[in-house]
Design a protein around this nucleic acid. Structure first.
Lengths: 223, 223
DNA sequence: TAATATCATAAGGTTTGCCTATTAATTAAT
DNA sequence: ATTAATTAATAGGCAAACCTTATGATATTA
């Protein structure tokens, strides 16, 4: 499938769709929320993407990526995450800033550069935030993990990935040691959707539930 | 001087100005020609850049970069040429394609990335096309060389830089060995602005005068 | 089934950058 | 010096890509 060049904005919508819903239906409102635009703007874009055959839109139900849309979206993710690897491992850019800076570069990256970069990096499988890098053909293994927000009190878990994109949010998590491979224990969960209290690297850390949603973990069975 | 983010198009105009005129006045028509737009478009952009204090425009005379404009332009050149180094030396992108691909990336490059890239590359002084890379503060030594088109018949010269930007033109030169550090001898100059005949790596090569303009050389004195 | 929340569409605005056609200034040539 | 030819600038307009507010349609749930 040959993909015509897409606008930066289009690529952001596609990326948000695959990050938010994968192969599932996504509510247009969620998309608008994530991209910080009005739902009108998101709707309009969905109409355009529908005309281009990238998404399928069932009014009042939501949108899904078509095969073509999914390929395009995975291609964007591949570029993004390869740049993240480069910025982090070679340019020594601070972890919280990597996402945003890679995002700028991703839209300006020709296929030849993408593949040369992948080769240079040694075909990495995961980005610095723990998410898998789609292959050149567009497919990838979704991470099998659960959100930290659903781990029960007393549970031990290892962070697999951090799904935040905002630099300030990433900075907040970074300062508390909440990065991939880190192990955490849920000490307490405050009632009424209150914050979690975690034990991280020997220190107690409070983390709002909304933030905990972004943190993908695997349970470490009690030995 | 703090530079607000400039549009891609704006950066292209600034880059063309510094490449075409340096500190000198540039005719708006030349600029339009170089960027493949009508002179109306170039005029309009000059008005906008004038309002932003980046250029000084004397109607019917031409435009020059202000100090601020020159800094912005040199900053663009720095990003462009650093990416050229990276693409060529590390990603092994073919020499003729490097310019165009670097050009895409240059507009998406934040200052932090520029400086981290420069450090990664070991603060290179020249790009793969032979031109100097401006320092972080914006200044650089202009290359002291002459155009191959003004070297007399019989003259020996060493190529210092190639000023072409079009991938096809670069490919043409590359296929004939006309790259920086290469030594050439002018065997013959056809009359009426006809092509030069050159001796390059033991082979005779014909080169149109227009193309020879792009090739910057230093004379090798007859020993 | 009525109320509420969510979603979709209508109509319109802004920005950016491009164009054709016209007018004005400059330069070169008689 | 005056005119012809060249080059530059302005007027007016178009299109693409996004955004907005206001309004109408559908779903959900009490």
């Amino acid at each position: 499938m040959i993909l015509q060049p897409l606008s930066e904005s289009t690529e952001m919508y596609l990326k948000a769709m695959v990050e938010l819903g994968g192969r599932e239906v996504v509510a247009v409102g969620r998309l608008a929320e994530r991209l910080s635009v009005t739902s009108v703007s998101a709707n309009e874009m969905m109409r355009r993407l529908g005309e281009q055959g990238l998404v399928s839109h069932t009014p009042y139900k939501g949108v899904t990526l078509t095969q073509m849309g999914r390929e395009a979206a995975c291609n964007v993710l591949r570029r993004q995450r390869l740049w993240e690897c480069f910025l982090y491992a070679h340019l020594k850019i601070e972890w919280p800033q990597v996402y945003e800076l890679a995002c700028d570069l991703e839209h300006a990256t020709a296929p030849a550069v993408t593949e040369a970069l992948a080769a240079f990096l040694g075909q990495p499988s995961h980005c610095p935030y723990g998410d898998p890098i789609p292959a050149a053909d567009g497919e990838f293994e979704p991470l099998l993990g659960i959100s930290l927000s659903v781990v029960g009190v007393g549970g031990h878990a290892r962070i697999l990935a951090v799904r935040a994109t905002d630099t300030d949010v990433l900075k907040y998590l970074y300062e508390r040691g909440l990065v991939p491979a880190c192990e955490v224990q849920v000490v307490e969960a405050a009632p009424l959707q209150g914050p979690l209290t975690l034990r991280v690297n020997g220190k107690e850390v409070a983390l709002g539930l909304a933030l905990a949603e972004f943190v993908i973990v695997e349970i470490i069975p009690a030995s």
